[in-house]
Structure formats: C-alpha cells, structure tokens
C-alpha cells in the first residue's frame, strides 16, 4: 500500500473542493466539536488533524482509535471561518485507515450486512410483528439491491478494504496466539 500516494490524492481532492491550506489555526473547529468538549482536546482535537495533514504527517493519525470518534455532525465544517471541510478530511483519513485494514468492528459488521441484505437493518420477524400491531404490511424482501451493491463493492475499493480489515484481524490474532504459545514454552 502506498500511503503517500493516497495522501497526495486526498490533498488533491480536497484542494479541488476547497482549499485546506487556508486553515489559519484559529481552533474554532475544536470549540465547535461536541466530542472534543466531552473527551477533552488532548484526546480528540480536529484542528490537529488538519495540521498533521498540512504538514504531511497524516499517516501518523491512521492507527489512532480516536480518529473514529468523529460523530459526523459537521459542526467543525460549518463553523470554520475559512470553510475548511474538517469532517470531510477526517472521513477521507478514515477511508485511508480502512485501506490499511483499520476500521471499528461495528462499522465493518454493518457494512457487511448492507452488502448481504441490501440494507443497514434487514427486515426481521420482530420488526414485522411490531408493524402488524400498527396495521402496516410486512417489509418487502428484495435481493436485487444486495446483488447490485456487491457488484459496486467489487468495482470500487470497498470489497478490497473489507478484505484488508479481515486479513489484518487474522494476522493480529495469529500474532497473539504465537506470543501466547511462546510464553507457554519458555
């Protein structure tokens, strides 16, 4: 994987949409961020993400679990006096982390469900029971969507990234079991 090339692409794309370089480090994005307010800026700090990207250091953020705390409320982007799309930048960095196999399990599980069933929440018996109590018909089941979505996943980077996440998890588990075995033998 070529992280530098990815970062160049991100910068080029963001530069096309809006100039990230216009960040003048005022910190309004941090003040506007509800996550930063609760975790403390030492844990989650959107301006530092912009700064690291501008300085070509974004790769250092990719393994940080805190990169995924962003709640996607876009308050940072909306309040930025320079219109830097901070939340979009964070999303792009998360995409880059995914291409290295780093993504929270709950997100992966839901995306796999979307590709299997066509929906984030697939129709269930329990849901249809609640619906019938209200006089609503059962949710129609249509598998065409899922098949199309699988094709789209293969034609984009989505499928590859999901596989990368699985591969990384398997490697980590293997490394862990080797360590445990080694510990047992000594």
């Amino acid at each position: 994987m070529n992280v530098e090339k990815h970062l160049e692409e991100i910068s080029a794309k963001l530069a096309k949409r809006v100039d990230t370089k216009s960040c003048f480090a005022c910190g309004t994005c941090v003040a506007a961020c509800p996550i930063s307010r609760l975790t403390g800026p030492e844990t989650y700090h959107p301006r530092r993400v912009v700064k690291a990207t501008l300085e070509g250091e974004a790769a250092t953020l990719l393994a940080e679990p805190t990169l995924w705390l962003c709640t996607s409320c876009h308050a940072c982007l909306e309040h930025c006096p320079q219109k830097v799309p901070v939340s979009e930048l964070i999303k792009d960095l998360q995409n880059l982390a995914s291409s290295m196999g780093i993504t929270p399990e709950d997100i992966v599980a839901e995306v796999e469900n979307i590709l299997t069933t066509g929906w984030a929440l697939a129709p269930s018996e329990q849901a249809n029971k609640k619906r019938s109590e209200l006089g609503l018909p059962p949710i129609p089941i249509d598998n065409h969507g899922a098949k199309d979505l699988q094709k789209i996943a293969k034609a984009t980077n989505l499928q590859e990234r999901l596989e990368k996440v699985k591969q990384r998890k398997a490697e980590e588990e293997q490394a862990l079991s080797v360590t445990e075995e080694g510990g047992g033998m000594s």
């Binding site: 996607s72 999303k91 998360q94 993504t103 997100i107 839901e110 066509g118 065409h144 979505l149």
Partner: peptide, 21 residues
Amino acid sequence: GFSCCPNPLTLPHIDHHAALV
C-alpha cells in the same frame, strides 16, 4: 428497487466513493 441509502455513518467512512455510487 431501492437499497440502503447507504448509512452515512458507516459505509462512506470505509469508502466514500462506493457510498456515492
């Protein structure tokens, strides 16, 4: 014929281009 929108809180965070498609 509709499918998942897809959920803006999950799928675009892995691949925003796939989400757009």
